[in-house]
């Protein structure tokens, strides 16, 4: 084994800590429940079992991370992730504020294409817009699915 591999792995330890926190939250939540049914198991039984399981797994993950035995991996390109998540957040914001399905789709499309290395934002916005209009016509108008409406969709 090479000496580098025995160094504690910070990401692994963070994951273990996250699991422990989830376990604690589930355990706490189980304590808030009323018994409900007088017979058999209560609603808190399964959460407690799962919380204990997660706690044990947190320890196991911690042990592995501490010994640094994690699969090797390279760092990812954070910029790409920011573009995609940004696109999704923009989509949610536009739909949430009543901007409608088509503009939201256009922006998500362009942002994702940008994350994959395209540098033609206006062209991609246009493509996304056309896809949005086409999908809206097909699914909302023709096949009667309900998609979020905005000013543009009301015109169609």
């Amino acid at each position: 084994m090479n000496p580098k591999a025995t160094k504690p792995d910070t990401a692994g330890i963070a994951i273990a800590a996250g699991l422990a926190v989830i376990a604690a939250v589930i355990w706490w939540d189980a304590g808030q429940l009323a018994q409900g049914s007088p017979y058999g198991l209560g609603p808190d039984a399964a959460p407690r079992v799962i919380a204990v399981g997660l706690a044990v797994l947190a320890l196991a993950n911690f042990a592995i991370a501490w010994r640094g035995r994690l699969p090797h991996r390279e760092a990812g390109d954070l910029g790409a992730i920011v573009w995609i998540i940004g696109g999704l957040v923009a989509l949610i914001a536009i739909i949430g504020l009543g901007g409608g399905f088509i503009p939201a789709t256009a922006i998500l499309f362009a942002a994702t294409a940008r994350a994959f290395g395209r540098r033609a934002l206006p062209a991609d916005l246009a493509i996304g817009f056309v896809i949005g209009v086409g999908a809206y016509l097909l699914f909302a108008k023709l096949l009667t699915l309900s998609l979020p409406m905005g000013p543009l969709e009301r015109l169609i």
Partner: peptide
């Protein structure tokens, strides 16, 4: 091309999700 393929996938994924359960 990959940028458009994945952009299309995300558009379809979000569309399916919002059509199945209309909630932000």
């Amino acid at each position: 091309p990959q940028p458009w393929l994945y952009a299309g996938i995300l558009v379809f994924a979000t569309m399916g999700t919002i059509a199945a359960k209309p909630s932000v």
